[in-house]
Amino acid sequence: MVTQWIIPKDFVSKYSKILGDEVREFIKYCKIPTRPAVRINTLKKRVEEVLREIDFMSPEKIPFCDYAFRINYDKPGNTLSHFLGHYYVQDPASLVPVILLAPKPGEKVLDMTAAPGGKTTHIAQLMENRGTVVANDVRLERVKMLRSNLERMGVLNTIVTMNDAMSLGYKKSFDKVLLDAPCSSEGEVRKRWNALSGWSQRRVEQFSRVQKRMIKRAVAAAKPGGTIVYSTCTLSPEENEEVIQYALENLPVKIVRQRIKGLKHRPGLEGYDCRDCLRIWPQDNDTIGFFACKMVKTA
C-alpha cells in the first residue's frame, strides 16, 4: 500500500523561503518514516543487560547518547522487555531537551507539559529516582497515560499534576524547568503521515501565542540562576525563534550556548537574536524535526 503523505502547498512554499533549494531534501525526508529507536531505562536495568534482551532488534548506538539505540524492529512496543519498562520507544531528537536540561539527583524539576511521559521518565532516569519531578498535563486522559508510563518505567520521584500550563502559578520554585510546548507538530510528519493534515499558517500563529504565555510561566517557575529548556517538535520560526525572542525581550533570561557532540544541529534562523538555539532538521540526523533552546534565569 502506498501512503499518500499530506504535505500542504503552503507548507512547502514556507520552507522554500527558509531552506532554498534544500527544501527538496527536506520534503523527501518528511515522506520517509523514521526508524524506531529506544532509550534504555537504567532505573530498571543496566544498559548491557537490556542490550542482550534486544539483541534480536540489531540495536545501533545513537552517537550522542550512551543509553539510546536505533533498532531494526518494527514492533518495539510489543515485547516483554517493553512491558517490563526496560526501555522507552523514543525518537533520538526527542532526547535532546532532557540532555540539555541535564537534571541531577536531588534537584527540583518541573515538566510543564509532560504526557505521555517520554521526557519525564528520561528526567527521572538522569535523577536516579532522587529529588522531585513535578510532571504536569492538562487533560485527564493524558494524565492517565503519563501515570501508566511512570508506573511501567518504575519512576518514584514524580508528582503528577493536572493543570493548564498557561495558568501554573509557581514562583521561583524549581532548579530546572522543561517546557516541551504543544505545537503544530510539523516535525512529526515522519511518524504520522497525516500530521500536517490540519496545518495552516493561522494555526501556527495560534500555537505561537499559547507558547509565549507558557514560556512566561516557565520562567516564573524557575529559581534565579535556574535552567529553562524550551523545545518543540515543529520547525516553524513563529513557534521557535519568535518565542525565544519574546522571552529574551520580556523576561529575565539569557540563552546558554550548547553543542551536543554527535548530533548535527543548526543555529536558530537569521533575523532573530537566538543563533545559539538548536534547530534539528529531519535530513541532518534522520530524525523527526525538532527545536530546543537552553536558557538561564538571570534574576
Partner: peptide
C-alpha cells in the same frame, strides 16, 4: 514515592506509583 517535596495550590493526580 521517593522523598519528594509536594507543590502547593495545584491539582495533584499522583505521587510516585
Amino acid at each position: 514515592s521517593s522523598d519528594v517535596i509536594l507543590p502547593k495550590g495545584v491539582n495533584i493526580q499522583g505521587i510516585g506509583i
